[in-house]
Structure formats: structure tokens, C-alpha cells
Design a protein around this nucleic acid. Structure first.
Lengths: 298, 298
DNA sequence: TCACTCCTGAAAGATATTTTCGGGGCGGGG
DNA sequence: CCCCGCCCCGAAAATATCTTTCAGGAGTGA
């Protein structure tokens, strides 16, 4: 039987604690015990059934239901839902501790939260700081490129590989180099219409600057992805894409956030190029997907 | 066979939307309808009984309960409580997620904004969905490991390298393998106290599963980082770390968000291990920083 | 086409919630 | 001081809701 709830009063979301105080005087003793338990530990009581809450407060199911009614809910079931909501709010509300640095004795849950938060922050900063004009120019150069070479070492080397992998999948000729000698050797062979990209957080990684310089001097279009646009690498870059830098700490090396930032830039480049060369990129993407399908079992 | 969902899986409050996306592929059609309704309108569905939700989605009560179970709750009742919590958070919290797909003719500024937003979302989902118990177990195994081998191909291969690089910097013996044959060859040499990690978004990449299986059978501790905890790879994993999956589109291949998610997990592992082995990790970090300093010019 | 597996929903079974109903405490009047 | 009546209270019945079982049936591979 569906009992239509009388008064137009919709259940209270967060005002529950207040309501308890307001109505407490008009409650009987046992109902007060129930209300008290509910207001004192929303999360805990939300996990209990009527019977459970009745036992906890030393009362009966009937009293629990009566209390729920008095608080403005159609029944205990609805009070319980409201409690769950309240608990969730309280839970999410007390999370501002994540702005702190990661400490040696932080529990893992905190580590996860802090890392996620920091990386989100890095992404926001990068997106805000990215010069879309420079990005557009870089995309244009890539889309028209005959061949693309990407230079990066260590953590940035992985980003370089990521970019090369992506460009390959949309039919571009792209390679990543992390061996500085081979990179220079490779750079010597570049000409106009070729594009060279250097990725370095510090902007002063010699092993990466050198091949970019060589490419630059041989007439290739050069792009730098760096966290220090005033760094040495910029001297040889036609287009400069700036990544953001987050504060680092002992347990959170700079490589972590710079990588996140660099990857976002790389993704933007990739999508930009894919848009510009959609006619060829789309089939290439589909084809590479198809070709790999049989490598997955079951 | 590793139990994927049983035991230590605590119900997820905010991770629900992410969990739906993660598990959707392994759901049957009717269960997907239920999951979709739940993820699409938490507040609305929280107000419904099993029967109501079954009718709304055109399925049966049994299917609704099955879906709740699959999502990690003991039954529908608990799913409903979680939904109420989620609804409350959305209500009080930030604006609803309005993620438009990236279109071919989006201006670059939009591309940047959308990509950044999507990746932030992915990070939040991953953090919310990460099982800290599993993470803790994985960290423990790594901290005590004599030797660590990481397997991954293509995009996941880069993540594997990233993890290996990081572990090396805190004095662990770690290597990444992307050549499947060499990986298997390597896996054969593993023993107890060694740790093998497989990284695969699909959970069914044969080239990565095979070395993990070999390592598993040779007594090494095995860890899987995957977006499909129900995938084949989990059979050979002692610990399973789940990455989140964002919906993908033509211009935004799955590799993009899965990589972001995987990297967060890797970072968490790294920091966790660094904490546990702080005595040796801190000097190692400092030393590697020092050793690279002269490679930066000016 | 057939056998097989696995999804699916109807209905039985188990729990949880709500309602009913009578016992009993407490205060006021006799 | 005792009796009466009011109303709070909880036990248990009644109802709603959730869970499990079971068998039909769709889809799939041989």
C-alpha cells in the first residue's frame, strides 16, 4: 500500500541535525535516544536496519519508525537514505587536507588522494597556460610534415615515444630518439618540411638540445615542449609549447608532474593533427585498431 | 583463479560512475541497462525500490540485484544507499559533468579544455576506484622484492618503462619489457621474492599475459594493472589494481585515458614503495638527482 | 541443424519495515 | 492512599521489499 505522505514537507538533506535539536523537546525519552544516535553518527546508523538501530538505542522498531516520521520522513527507509547522503557529504567535505605535501607516514589512501589532486592541478595549470597560437602553429607544421623526429631522454623520453606512437597511428612518419648520439645523427638528415620536437622539462638538457639545434640549422621546423620557455632549448625552437611545473617534494620528484603536463600537450598536438588530417587519420586509426584486435584473447 | 570481487572490496561512494564504466563491458545487455540508469540518474534511482528500478529498465528484480552485486555491493539495498550518497555529493558538490565529445571542427582552445577536463575526470575516477588494500599489498610485495620485472606493450609499454625508471631511482632492481619473447624468457628466471607486473588496459593482451603466467607459475608475486579486472590477466595475478576507463571517441582513443589512469596507479605504487623503503630510497633519489645535474647546461 | 552455454525473468523464499494492539508507567482525582 | 485514565512503549502480526532458485529461451559454435 502506497501511503501518500501528508504534508508537503520534503525530507531534509543536511538540515537533519538542526531538525533533531528543534524537535527534541517534543520527543519522548526513547525517541530522543534514537534521534541522538542518528544525529551523532549518521554514517554508522545508515548502516543499520530498523532492528539494529532499535537494539543499539535499547528501544523497539516501532519507536525508530515513529522517530523517522517525526523527523519528516515517510518511514525509516527514507530516513536511512537521507542519512547515507548526509554521511557522504560529511565524508567529501573533510578532504581539504590533500593540499599538504606527501609525508613519509601518510597512509596509502592519502597518497592516492594527494597524487590525484596534484596531477589534476597540473592539468588545469597546463591547460590554462598553453598558448593556443603556438599550439596551432605546431599542429600546422606537424600536419604538413614529411617526417617527424622526437627527442627526449629519461622521463621525457617516454613522452617522446608516446607522441611518436600516436603520430604513427594516424599515418604520420614519426620516430622517437632517446640515444643522444643517434639523435644527432638523425637530426643531420632533416630538411625543410621535416619537423623536430624536443621535450625537456628543464629546458637545458644538453642531450636533447643538441639534436634540436642540428635540426634547426638544417632547416627543419623545430618545436620545443618545455617547462622553462626561457631555457636554452628555446633558442633553436620555432614554436615553444610551455608545460607547467608543480611544486615538488622529496617523495614527489618533478618528473611526475612534468610528465603529466607534457602528456597533455602531446595529446593536444595529436588531436590537433588528427583533426587537420582527418581524411587520412581516421582510416589509419581504424586500421591500426583492426590489426591489433587478434592480439587480444578470448 | 583469483577472486576478483569477493572479500576486501568496500562499497564505493563516489567511484560508482567510474565503476560502471569499468565493468560495463563485462555486463550483459540487461545489466547494462540497469547500470546505465543508475549512473545516469543516481538521485532518481535511489528513490526506487528493486521492483521500481526493474520496471523502469524493463528488466526483472533478479537482474537489478545481480547488477548491484557486480558493482561490488552485497545487494540492492546497499547500492541504493550508495546512490543516495552519490546524489547528495553531486547536489552539494561541483557542477554536473558535461563532457562533450571532441569534434573534428572543434577549435584548438576547445580541444585543450576538453582533453584537460577528461583527463582530470579520469584521475578522479581512478583515485576513487583504486582499492587501497590491493594497493597496499602490491606495495608491500614491491618493497620486499629482490627484483621487479614489468611487462607492457604499446602505450602500456611506456607506462611499464615509467614504473621501471622510477623504481630504479629509489634503488630497486627493476626492468621493463615490451618484447614478448624476451619477456617470457625473462619470466622463466623469476622465483619467490621476485615481483612481476603486467600492465594491460584490455586485460586480454596475450603478449603481456603470457609472461605474467610464466612468472606466476614460477612462484613470483604477480601484479596486474588493468582496466578489466575480470579479464584473463587476473587469473595469474596475486594483486589486481584497477584503472578506470573513460568513454572514448574516434578522436580520443582509449589509450589516452587509460594511460593517464595507469600512470596515476604507477605513481601511487612508486610513492608507496618509497615510503616503505625510505631509509634507502631517499639517498638513492638524491644520488640519482646529483648524478644527472651536470647534464643540464648553463 | 543440434547441442550447449549462459542470460533472463517468474515466482518462491527470506528479510526488513510498518502497523496493530495490548501491557504498564505515571499523574491526577477521589 | 487507591483508583482511573492517558499515553508511551515494545512484541508480534501484517505488509512491503529484497534475495534466491529454477526453468525457459536466446544466442553461439560445431
Amino acid at each position: 500500500m502506497k501511503e501518500v505522505f501528508a504534508g508537503g514537507a520534503p525530507p531534509a538533506p543536511a538540515a537533519l541535525a538542526a531538525k533533531v535539536r528543534t524537535l527534541a523537546p517534543s520527543m519522548t525519552r526513547s525517541m530522543q535516544r534514537v534521534a541522538e544516535a542518528v544525529a551523532g553518527d549518521p554514517a554508522g546508523t545508515a548502516a543499520l536496519t530498523v532492528t539494529g538501530l532499535a537494539e543499539l538505542t535499547g528501544t523497539s522498531e516501532a519507536t525508530v519508525v515513529r522517530t523517522a516520521r517525526l523527523l519528516g520522513y515517510p518511514g525509516y527507509r527514507d530516513l536511512r537514505l537521507a542519512l547515507a547522503g548526509l554521511a557522504a557529504q560529511q565524508q567529501s567535505g573533510r578532504a581539504p587536507a590533500v593540499t599538504a605535501d606527501i609525508a613519509v607516514d601518510d597512509p596509502l589512501a592519502d597518497v592516492v588522494a594527494k597524487l590525484a589532486y596534484d596531477e589534476q592541478q597540473t592539468l588545469a595549470d597546463t591547460a590554462a597556460g598553453l598558448d593556443t597560437v603556438q599550439l596551432g602553429a605546431a599542429v600546422g607544421a606537424l600536419a604538413a610534415a614529411r617526417r617527424v623526429e622526437v627527442y627526449g631522454v629519461a622521463a621525457s623520453g617516454l613522452v617522446a615515444q608516446d607522441l611518436a606512437q600516436k603520430l604513427l597511428r594516424i599515418g604520420q612518419i614519426a620516430h622517437a630518439h632517446s640515444d643522444p648520439h643517434l639523435a644527432v645523427t638523425n637530426a643531420v638528415t632533416l630538411r625543410a618540411k621535416d619537423v623536430a620536437i624536443a621535450i625537456t622539462h628543464s629546458g637545458s638538457t644538453g642531450d636533447v638540445i643538441e639534436p634540436l639545434r642540428v635540426a634547426f640549422e638544417h632547416g627543419a621546423t623545430t618545436i620545443a615542449i618545455t617547462g622553462r620557455p626561457d631555457g636554452l632549448v628555446s633558442q633553436y625552437a620555432d614554436h615553444i609549447l610551455t608545460t607547467s611545473t608543480a611544486r615538488e617534494s622529496e617523495l614527489r620528484p618533478a618528473a611526475m608532474s612534468s610528465r603529466t603536463s607534457q602528456l597533455l600537450v602531446v595529446d593536444c598536438l595529436f588531436v590537433g593533427v588528427a583533426q587537420r588530417t582527418y581524411e587520412t587519420a581516421a582510416p589509419a586509426l581504424a586500421a591500426s585498431y583492426e590489426a591489433l584486435a587478434h592480439r587480444h584473447r578470448r
